[in-house]
Design a protein around this nucleic acid. Structure first.
Length: 262
DNA sequence: ATGGTCGTTTTACGA
């Protein structure tokens, strides 16, 4: 089965690309980020017409995440919002559990805070959010299920994950604190699936709209699929749908996708 | 050599 994640940068602006991609790929579960829509504004019918179940956690204008799936998640299993701070009003996390022939599979769609500019409350919020994610992930891992934490982490893990690492040194995406927090999360026992791709070729997931970044392949790898050991054992292949970045009206991110044994 | 983008809460801001 195919589990995918894609920061679509606005579901209304990206509806044609989203339906084209869903039709082409038919992922069993698709995690979306930056839907930039309230739940009522999500183009639910166009997605349901393709055979997908839709679960959203939106907000007005910014952020917003969703889970699309060919089969409905288990009743009552959908979790909206990252636990750990009742005062956090930003919609950046949705999680659900599916029962499959191979047993339970839990998937989360994550839109981690950008954190720029440095030295502001935005960077503090990013690090606090990452600490909450680590705590929540530790609890999930205790379940010993197949678990995929998928999404836009807004963290460049290593210098090799950027075409021009030097231009990111003063950016929240590449700070030692951000990278350290991601490492701590992974060290709970998760595998960065895209890292397992042949390292002879750099894999990026985001190319800025500005300065011809796409044409120059000036990209960064910030979208990640983090797998529990149980999910890692089932992993058959992983990759990116790079061609989608070359479509009309593209998102600045491309879909990332993992194939699991059934 | 230089300037160059999107999406939305649209003439401001977040990314």
């Amino acid at each position: 089965m195919l589990i995918a994640s894609w920061n679509i940068n606005g579901v209304k602006a990206r509806l044609d690309a989203l339906t084209a991609w869903l039709t082409e790929r038919r992922p069993d579960i698709a995690c979306l980020q930056e839907i930039k829509s309230v739940d009522e504004g999500f183009p639910r019918k166009a997605i349901e017409d393709l055979g997908y179940h839709v679960e959203t956690h939106g907000q007005k204008g910014f952020n917003g995440v969703a889970l699309l799936s060919l089969k409905a998640p288990e009743e009552g299993s959908v979790l909206r919002g990252l636990p750990g701070d009742e005062s956090d009003e930003q919609s950046r996390y949705i999680e659900a559990l599916w029962q499959t022939e191979a047993g339970p599979l839990r998937v989360a769609s994550i839109y981690l805070p950008n954190g720029n500019p440095l030295g502001t409350e935005k960077f503090d919020y990013k690090l606090a959010w990452m600490a909450r994610l680590e705590k929540h992930a530790a609890g999930l891992l205790e379940r010993e299920e197949r678990l995929i934490l998928a999404g836009d982490y807004n963290v460049i893990p290593e210098p090799t994950d950027a075409a021009k690492p030097d231009v990111w040194v003063n950016d929240a995406l590449f700070q030692p604190e951000s990278r350290g927090a991601l490492r701590r999360l992974i060290h709970l026992g998760l595998v960065d699936a895209l890292r397992e791709v042949d390292e002879s070729e750099a894999v990026y997931t985001f190319w800025d709209y500005q300065a011809g970044a796409w044409q120059k392949n000036n990209g960064i790898r910030i979208d990640h699929l983090l797998l529990s050991p149980e999910a890692r054992i089932a992993l058959r292949s992983v990759g990116i749908d790079k061609h989608v970045r070359g479509w009309e009206k593209p998102s600045d991110h491309v879909p990332i996708i993992a194939e699991l044994a059934e």
